[in-house]
Nucleic acid binder design. Structure first.
Lengths: 353, 353
DNA sequence: TTTATTTGCGTAAACGTTTAAGTAAAACGG
DNA sequence: CCGTTTTACTTAAACGTTTACGCAAATAAA
């Protein structure tokens, strides 16, 4: 038996005025609409006395604006996405927007459903980590003039606003870092995919390797599941025993790689060096700590919200805004072995010697 | 220039029928409302042909149901919360509900604002990790007959549905595990708070310690920030050099503890054992791996959604449902030292010996 | 003083649905 | 064949806002 909420009509009736007036006062349009100060005061007083809360549903229905942003990612529990979500929430809240989220599991089907549901709910804008194969559906949304900002990945040639990181140069940096530290048999472990960010990372790695006159060793995992992936990485490392360093192309491959190396009893920083694309808490606390390419989460979220706010205020979708951000290579102990062992924590390196 | 969407009226007009009929068909009430099969078919045909999508906003406005659940936590980026969010999203989506989330930063002010905003938006239900001091506001929501399920913590004597874990016994288990493995100077590091889950954990620890005839060593951190916390833990451990094991009462204290121990050059599993309340990926991959109390994320989410669905279908708020779930003590290498070193991985224990 | 403008409000329509209530025709019961 | 029930639909109100438009009174301009 939910009691009926106070409506703007109730306020108007109690004041013997019209809903128009009350609405103007509540929305701060009183001055421009020539409402007298006396009446403004009376309205405001009663509103706060009765603790009147406007019905956002009715408002949205009438105006078409929901003050809601749809946030669609592969999986909200992935630290990268929940980290972005954190900052997006902060910034959106500051602008009066709320976040409606859902995970797609990187499934086109789920993605399409979420897109449709959020559309029916009239979200004012979308923030999307584009799942495979959903381009056409997203294109439809974009052409219906609803602001869409993609992040983490995009489709080459796909016209939309996006915020990415410089995947190619980041991967190249990582490879160069290993090269500079004396490694020469540097592998790159990635997934079998046509997602742009993964291809860019692979290209960056290959360029750096070629530039150094080395031979690239690329392993593409056809990702079926965690245990299969671990086994495949382990097998790969066993088969290529010359490898002295590995770059893993994303956070979950890094984790699988850690498992694989543990299985093979390979000691990181000693038997083999590694760099992770994506920084994870575990990497910092690992002994020896593991070098990683850190994405600037807050900056990504900032840029996304900048674009969205621009789109939402200036009602235009023209001239797509394409932002590419730099990453930070967090150099840690385990990738500095071959060059000189002085800088490495003794207790990490003397293990088993 | 967003083009006007198709409305139920357009459908009705094109078919030369009434909106009522169309509405009934769309909502699957055609049979019970005695719509002829012929007409049903015509409506359904046109609806799919024109790809008509009902305006969820108008629907919500009319019915008062938004098919939205407000999810309010301290910080969505914390793995515990984003893990719960993941499962909640899955299960809610399956029931046609979407999740509107926001983080409170455990601030009463932010929490109150979020609560109010979500209320104005007429979310159908709330899932809340109750921030300090927000009891009265939440109580108001509950008494307005909107389903609310609390999780992670609650207020003793606060009448509401909740899903908790058995904090007291979990902490006691952890302490007993250490005792059984031969540790005797076991500290408990927690925060200065009156949050129920922390008090319960402390009580569990103390009971187990007392039962074993040992002396409790409790350190309460007045949490001001990460670096202060690390310093305080380090100072504490330095002052009490007799300590041979520590239980950290929550995930972020565990992380701070790792930092503090690193600062002091204390080798986990060797100089000192530890157990973390809350499992984190870093703990599993740490060498030696670190024992932790793992909360059953999916089961917690399951129970929350069970309660919510019950409340949302049976329109009653009476007889609060209070669920307490067991945890799993994930026993790993670093807490099995004192008892016998046979079971511990050699490379972990021989370090520095 | 007359006319034009500004001030200060109110009236009422509209947004897209759902649904109570009504109606006419068909089917049924006796 | 007449009254009753059932079938198959329609009419119209309602949900709580926003806002275009209208209008009278006050003020300014001429």
């Amino acid at each position: 038996m939910r009691e009926k909420r106070l409506s703007i009509t109730d306020i108007a009736r109690q004041l013997g005025t019209s809903t128009t007036t009350v609405s103007f006062v509540i929305n701060g349009k009183a001055r421009e609409k020539n409402i007298s100060q006396v009446l403004i005061d009376r309205v405001e007083h009663l509103v706060s006395e009765l603790n009147y809360q406007p019905n956002a549903l009715a408002k949205s229905f009438r105006t078409g604006k929901t003050m809601t942003i749809g946030f669609i990612v592969d999986e909200i529990s992935q630290p990268f996405f929940s980290g972005i979500a954190k900052y997006i929430d902060e910034k959106a809240s500051a602008h009066g927007y709320n976040i409606l989220f859902s995970s797609t599991k990187n499934s086109k089907k789920r993605g399409g459903e979420v897109l449709q549901v959020f559309n029916e709910r009239h979200v004012d804008a979308f923030i999307i980590a584009l799942p495979n194969g959903l381009e056409n559906e997203v294109r439809k949304v974009i052409s219906s003039e609803i602001p869409v900002v993609l992040f983490d990945r995009y489709i080459p040639g796909f016209e939309s606003d996006y915020v990415l990181i410089d995947n190619e140069n980041s991967a190249a940096d990582a490879a160069r870092h290993l090269i500079d530290n004396g490694y020469s048999e540097i592998a790159f472990v990635t997934i079998e995919t046509d997602q742009s960010q993964m291809l860019d990372r692979t290209r960056g790695y290959e360029k750096a390797i070629h530039t150094a006159g080395l031979k690239p060793i690329v392993k593409k995992i056809n990702y079926q599941g965690k245990s299969e992936s671990i086994a495949e990485i382990a097998e790969f490392l066993k088969q290529h025993s010359q490898i002295d360093a590995v770059v893993f192309s994303c956070n979950y491959l890094t984790m699988d790689g850690l498992d694989a190396m543990r299985q093979l009893n390979l000691k990181i920083g000693e038997d083999i060096a590694m760099v992770s694309f994506d920084d994870l808490e575990v990497l910092k606390y690992f002994v020896p700590s593991i070098t990683a390419i850190a994405q600037p989460l807050e900056e990504i979220a900032n840029q996304i919200m900048e674009i969205l706010m621009y789109r939402l205020t200036n009602n235009t979708n023209k001239n797509k805004i394409k932002t590419v951000l730099a990453t930070q290579l967090e150099i840690r102990d385990s990738s500095q072995f071959k060059k000189s062992s002085d800088e490495v924590q003794p207790e990490a390196l003397t293990v088993g010697k």
